[in-house]
Amino acid sequence: MSVFDKFLAGFSFRGSTPDYAVGDTIEVMVTGREGDAVGGGTAVARVGDSTLRIEDAPTDAVNTRVVVDVESWDGSGHRGVGTYRETVGESAF
């Protein structure tokens, strides 16, 4: 990203439900799990008020930053499903 782009980044009004397309590869923070309450279930990343279920994520993925391939996306419900690729970081705290 150029220096000029750094100044312009985010210079817009951004909605609360971002949408993604099938085939997108995105980096997200895993924010929780869906399904079984105790330790199981599918990893989920809440991005704004949109939700991405992440298949094949490690069991300890919550609060880690992971790269995900988006496999499907429901634009009206702002929900999608993706596949875990790799872990690239953790929570700041």
Binding site: A9, G10, F13, G15, P18, Y20, E27, M29, V47
Partner: peptide
């Protein structure tokens, strides 16, 4: 309130 300047983690590392 309006989302001005809001960026999400997937937007850029």
């Amino acid at each position: 309130i309006t989302g001005f300047g809001r960026e999400y983690i997937p937007d850029r590392a």
